[in-house]
Write a protein that binds this DNA or RNA. Structure first.
Lengths: 342, 342
DNA sequence: CTGAAAGCGCTTACAG
DNA sequence: CTGAAAGCGCTTACAG
């Protein structure tokens, strides 16, 4: 027993205010009217003792933890900071705590540390959870909101993500309409990545709606990764396949694409337009400054957290929320813009 | 009372295994030898019921939460992701949970949500906590490790930070020795920022050890911010003060510096060398690629978390940990390096 | 409007 | 090696 037992409890307050502990509890949760006079005594006693209730005890008694969990695979990536900023903005506003899990733990480690008993609800980013675990959690009535990922067949778990398709269609159309590009490469993201498949759909629809045939030899693996993308672009160039633009799938892939083009002495944007997706912090600093689609990642975080809190309160919630993206036209597509103060 | 009461408890297991709850508890915490036979019965019962102990109840009984908290002002900044990666790597390894606080909450909001009863210890980033709160927490025996910030006078709170002085001295010396720079500007960070003052000390020592006098007119406000830095550099240039290098204090300030230099048609690195500090993700993508000092932020996170866990276990801990920095020489200082595959 | 009492699900001296 | 019981600090029907 290593309890310091220093902290003052509800009993101490009750004794000092000369009421029962139940009364203190009621005052704390103001779910019953107290007589003005007792209320004052209680408040005075709480002040004097500098009392604050023990959250763990409260949690055990109420079966609420006042915290939500964020589960993800790993925290890498530039979108992580804005995502978390969004989530925290709303947990803070609504007086919830945030617990961070990465799924390494959920796979290998002591399972006690992970699970619904710690949280009132879970935000699951991408494929942060195995489908099986997700299903179990959902069936045990744990409120869940998915981020950038759709629910498994038949499960009604709300999702928040962005307008991947519309954004992609818009930027590819821009390439065609504003810059007369005709042979546009697309770099796919990781297999199974939903953002990537929507972006591919947007790409295809843009081409089709402009009467272009889809040339599958222009669709390559980029993996949302600069090195993979650089390799794919090198291969394409060496194969002698002609193209006049690249929609890289995400900004990281744009980095590799720009590098490969530079190696091959192909000028961007004069000979080849390059556009990305995400609008990461480094996008304006690439050479040339990257035209891309802005993903409102902080909004995604806010919205997801807000919806999870609604779910926790048993309020109704839409099942799919799509946040609008926005075209950011800098130089790499062929548009010109002052570069120095971006 | 909205308790689903679905989950199985230690009593259920005890009943099934035909032992007392105390025995289950002992098995869980393996702090007493159980007879082989009971151990097997208990394990079988736990498996059958798919039991996992309730962390909140456990926490109430033991006065341990198995979670640590990270407190900070706001989560902006590129160093945040690596910092958190480092922290999570160790909390995961040691089976701790991580709770994220931002200090907005600690200032305005319901104080119940913040505090030692939620966590076994706290990681405090920069000035994430008012000095008064820090002192109170420390005096109430809450284990604390400070990150990039030193303890208030007289308090023995461990700190982990980086070798700001040595890194700065090294890069400024590089400017002098390798590139014959003689009039080197320094851009200060925000007032009171300790990283900044150590960097300034390193800058001064580098100049002095090379026999240069310090010209205070070359020390300006940069605020670790691109806009402030751009303004300061504009003013310096317009004042006609001569300089041949800028140590920008951090990488963000380097962005503004490069922009101001470009506006003024001063070529980097031919006319002016520019070096930063941090080695943020975007550093290699600036034009020219930024020479800078690498701050091992993930290591800072790991080390801080590891030391906090030691503190929690009452193991001894050094009071100041300084992690080594490293010179990253790219192009902006005048060194040359292949740029495309960085 | 207020109190006495049971309960949340564990852990841990204390006995045996 | 194991059990009975008290306790962790709250909340919440149930009475009055």
């Amino acid at each position: 027993m290593k309890k310091p037992k220093n902290s003052t409890t509800i009993r101490d307050v009750a004794r000092l205010a000369d009421v029962s502990v139940a009364t203190i509890s009621r005052y704390l949760n103001n779910n019953t009217l107290l007589s003005k006079e007792t209320a004052q005594r209680v408040q005075a006693a709480m002040n004097e003792l500098n009392f604050s209730p023990h959250p763990v005890a409260r949690s055990l008694a109420t079966n609420r933890t006042n915290t939500i969990g964020l589960v993800m695979n790993d925290i890498a990536g530039d979108f992580f900071t804005p995502l978390l900023e969004g989530i925290i903005a709303t947990t803070e506003e609504q007086n919830y705590n945030l617990l961070i899990y990465t799924s390494n733990r959920t796979k290998h480690a002591n399972p006690i540390l992970f699970g619904p008993k710690y949280t009132d609800g879970l935000l699951v980013f991408l494929n942060g959870l195995e489908e099986e675990d997700l299903i179990n959690l959902h069936q045990s009535n744990q409120p869940i909101v998915l981020i950038h990922h759709s629910a498994p067949e038949g499960l009604n778990i709300p999702t928040v993500t962005i307008e991947n398709k519309a954004g992609s269609k818009a930027i590819v159309s821009h390439l065609i309409e504003a810059h007369q590009r005709k042979r546009i490469v697309f770099l796919r993201g990781p297999a199974g990545n939903e953002d990537s498949s929507w972006r591919e759909t947007g790409y295809r629809q843009a081409l089709e709606s402009h009467g272009f045939a889809i040339d599958e030899s222009l669709i390559l693996q980029g993996n949302f990764d600069r090195f993979t993308s650089q390799e794919s672009m090198r291969t394409l160039i060496q194969a002698g396949i002609q193209f006049d633009a690249v929609f890289t799938g995400d900004d990281d892939a744009a980095i590799g694409t720009l590098a490969a083009l530079k190696e091959a002495n192909l000028h961007v944007p004069e000979q080849v337009s390059v556009v990305g997706f995400d609008d990461q912090r480094l996008a304006p600093f690439l050479t040339p400054a990257l035209s891309t689609v802005h993903a409102p990642t902080d909004q995604v975080g806010m919205t997801a957290a807000r919806h999870l809190l609604k779910l926790i309160r048993h309020e109704p919630v839409e099942s799919v929320i799509l946040l609008p993206t926005e075209l950011i036209l800098r130089n790499s597509c062929g548009c010109s813009q002052a570069i120095s103060t971006e």
